[in-house]
């Protein structure tokens, strides 16, 4: 057996070992993380929303209208620009956002 044939055999071993992983999909619940508390205030320059994550892992994002905020663990304070209309926050994913709170 020559070297290319051996390499081919070794390649097949690697492929076989990794093939189950190629079917891996993210769990459906990956976006279900929620916030436990929301406190909002209306400072002079805009709304401040303070949110505390229940889970230690971050949710995907927080969206506000067309704005999107990435998320960090723990307590988060996000400032929104002043607006005259009601503010609704939604938590990602984009495909199935659910409302958090409307002020």
């Amino acid at each position: 057996m020559n070297s290319p044939e051996i390499d081919k055999s070794l390649d097949e071993l690697f492929r076989a070992s990794l093939s189950p992983l190629s079917e891996a999909k993210p769990p459906a619940g990956v976006w279900r993380r929620v916030v436990s508390t929301i406190q909002a205030s209306q400072p002079s320059h805009g709304l401040a929303a303070q949110l505390t994550a229940v889970d230690t892992m971050p949710p995907l994002c927080l969206s506000y209208g067309q704005r999107l905020f990435s998320w960090i663990n723990g307590l988060n304070t996000i400032y929104f620009p002043p607006t005259s209309g009601p503010i609704s926050l939604e938590l990602g994913p984009w495909t199935k956002p659910f409302p958090l709170r409307t002020w």
Binding site: P26, P27, V30, M57, P58, P59, L60, C61, S70, W71
Partner: peptide, 8 residues
């Protein structure tokens, strides 16, 4: 868990 974070 890391893969989920990276996906996000």
């Amino acid at each position: 868990r890391a893969a989920e974070d990276i996906l996000q």
